[in-house]
């Protein structure tokens, strides 16, 4: 089952909780997850909660190197087991008593939520009310929006678990990676990934949408190459039937 690991982006970094089950299976599962969604957490500092699980030094080291492969750094191990805490201390990691991560009962998430993994996992860390639809029926991640009021330049990355709003241009070579929607009040020329934890209802909108690449959930599209258009108008990129569509804002009808 998929429900024995939980990963959340929090303000302090990435919280990973291991539930019940064999460590081999859990780490394989974590690896699969990071392979799919790891880009979002890259560079993150990790707190690993293992409940009462006994982990030896080599077990922790294994998790550490798995995370390192995905450019994440294990900093804290949280456990109620003395052996685990001692092993973590030996490795020079921070330790904490077994705190139950907010929004989950046992470090895992409920089977009911498993169907909607990415979204729920993000939710829990920021706002507990879960996915909701607003008046127009647009599904949104509940995490707070991040408003970036400047030009995002080549080499810069904006990464946020909720919706990202950029008031300014996103230049070629820049990246915006969001758990929710991406809204650019300006020219979007860089790479953008909306719904990066699997939320295919996320959208990308921009006053001038000519990015190198648009990703929504696990889909990728390249707008046709052919140089810059002479005219520009607001557009929206969204997913339908497992494809990304880009349409003029004026042509958009939310929900059929």
């Amino acid at each position: 089952m998929d429900n024995s690991i939980s990963i959340k982006g929090t303000r302090d970094g990435v919280a990973i909780a291991l539930g019940e089950g064999e460590l081999d299976r859990l780490s394989a599962e974590l690896e699969r997850y990071l392979e799919r969604q790891g880009a979002f957490f890259r560079g993150g500092v990790v707190t690993l909660s293992v409940g009462g699980r006994t982990m030896l030094r080599e077990d922790i080291e294994r998790m550490q190197s798995l995370l390192a492969e995905h450019e994440m750094a294990l900093r804290t191990v949280s456990s109620s087991d003395d052996v685990t805490v001692a092993a973590a201390t030996e490795l020079g990691l921070h330790t904490a008593g077994a705190e139950r991560p907010a929004g989950s009962s046992d470090g895992g998430i409920s089977p009911a939520a498993a169907a909607d993994l990415g979204e729920r996992r993000l939710e829990a860390s920021e706002e507990p009310q879960g996915v909701h639809a607003d008046a127009d029926g647009i599904a949104r991640a509940g995490a707070r929006a991040l408003v970036v009021r400047r030009r995002v330049r080549a080499g810069q990355t904006i990464r946020h678990s909720g919706t990202v709003v950029v008031i300014g241009d996103v230049n070629a070579g820049a990246e915006v990676i969001a758990g929710g929607d991406v809204v650019v009040w300006g020219r979007l020329r860089g790479m953008v990934h909306a719904g990066c934890l699997g939320n295919a209802s996320a959208v990308v909108c921009a006053l001038d949408l000519s990015p190198l690449q648009v990703r929504i959930a696990d889909l990728i599209t390249r707008p046709e190459e052919g140089g810059a258009r002479d005219d520009s108008y607001p557009e929206v990129a969204y997913v339908r039937d497992h494809s990304i569509y880009v349409e003029r804002w004026t042509a958009i009808r939310w929900r059929d």
Binding site: A154, G155, A174
Partner: peptide, 16 residues
Amino acid sequence: EANSVRGVDRVLGILE
């Protein structure tokens, strides 16, 4: 050229 402009953009981002 695009690659030169991007290089300068990158530098500006770092200097910011």
